[in-house]
Design a binder for these strands. Sequence first.
DNA 1: ATGTTAAAATGACCACAGTCACTAGTTGAC
DNA 2: GTCAACTAGTGACTGTGGTCATTTTAACAT
Lengths: 193, 193
Amino acid sequence: MLREERKKELKKDIFLKSIELFKEYGYENVSVEKIASACGIAKGTFFNYFPKKEHVLLHLGSSQIVLVKEIIQTHQCSNIKSKVHHIFRELLATYSQHADLLKLTISETIRSALKAESANILTLTDTLTDMFIDAKNTGLFQSAFDPKTISSVLVGIYFNSLITWSLSESPDEDLEIIFNSQFEVVWEGIEKK
Amino acid sequence: MLREERKKELKKDIFLKSIELFKEYGYENVSVEKIASACGIAKGTFFNYFPKKEHVLLHLGSSQIVLVKEIIQTHQCSNIKSKVHHIFRELLATYSQHADLLKLTISETIRSALKAESANILTLTDTLTDMFIDAKNTGLFQSAFDPKTISSVLVGIYFNSLITWSLSESPDEDLEIIFNSQFEVVWEGIEKK
DNA sequence: ATGTTAAAATGACCACAGTCACTAGTTGAC
DNA sequence: GTCAACTAGTGACTGTGGTCATTTTAACAT
């Protein structure tokens, strides 16, 4: 069906243009009308593709999850700790690139999670959980705690580092350093047999 | 000066009426105009006291910090773990009472943290950090990790539990249980000498 | 009392997210 | 080719958050 193709194409167009504009002028300073006219469509059409303006950001967030899945599959590694570490380092790296935008993405992701409007966080946690279950089964990993709790804690630390980083006056203070120190603490607990 | 008195009084009035209305009709369904007229003031006046509608929620959030400080001072306890545990249990308890509203509060707190518009989270973390420094000095507590990181991790777990809880389909699943399991994991790490 | 000045209240006003009744375009059946 | 049925596009309209020039009120000085 050609119809579907076109729809996907347009959604992608809207998404890319939005991101581009957000980066240039800042999320708040770009109206839906601006996006629409930049895409050569009417305002109403935008809402046929994204129910709310903020859903563009959630869409961006969901692409991070795809990234995680890719890493889990490609990055074979004997040591589970370094694998997990690698996943988050990678996530934080993409984060650092377009910090302002992803700050908003995180904030919208959490917001929508609390409004039960999107399941991005849940998906991320589940993906990690599966990885831990796998690692437990193949004997790569042992822990007194259950995989779901562990993943949840890790995801928590991830978001928390981002928040902590945003809060720190000095943007020099490295995001990765903040994450690492928190990671070391919790991993110490996770590894408990 | 009488002027100041009146201002504080009115701010409190606006705050309480807002919360009352939010609880009854839901945050989104209460316009600033509604709040204003319920307080017998004009819409513009509202914004003389709270720069944005959402700041009413942040104000609510900051009252939780006061609670923490109170607990730290009153609840004397030989065991630091149980003290920390007590603090968070208490926080979560007030949370459970008006869940919907505090869900929004959390979401706004995080949001504003990421926008660098409010320092609630920072204050909470600092308060805990001071407590840990104190405990280290008096020999009540030892850890290989520094107090700031520890507090940060704990605050992270706190918010994360709330998020996890919101995400769980079943509201039966106890918030306290979720927090406890995450707390056990990280405390294991924190205690590392 | 009266005048002066600064703070606080006001509500018309604006910009923008989101809605919806309507129009235009597409598909497939005959 | 024609019609019917559905899908996608549209933009005037609405409700609300937030602003700001103006007015009202309070505080103090003389």
